[in-house]
């Protein structure tokens, strides 16, 4: 678990992906008046992206380290 293991690098990449997903300008794409099942798009987007990030974390952590 020390050093630049594959897991560690994947997590850093995920961190960068998260920074991208949860910031301007990507956020601005979802701030319109549009809705998904009645729920504002921005709300759907953030929670969905959040869940994806968590799922990827779980996948990276719990998966086998080659």
């Amino acid at each position: 678990m020390i050093g630049p293991t594959l897991k560690g690098q994947r997590l850093v990449a995920l961190f960068l992906l998260g920074c991208l997903l949860f910031n301007f300008p990507l956020l601005a794409l979802f701030t319109g008046n549009s809705r998904l099942w009645g729920i504002p798009l921005i709300y759907c987007y953030i929670f969905a992206a959040w869940m994806v990030i968590i799922a990827l974390m779980a996948l990276i952590i719990e998966g086998r380290d080659q």
Binding site: N23, A28, T31, W37, G38, P40, I42
Partner: peptide
Amino acid sequence: FDDVFTKAAAVPELNALLVQGGAAGNYTTW
């Protein structure tokens, strides 16, 4: 969820809150 948001959308001040999303107005704060 959809009911909460739909009803909120009907109230102008609340709709502004949702669409504008506070943060959307100020990405620096976010």
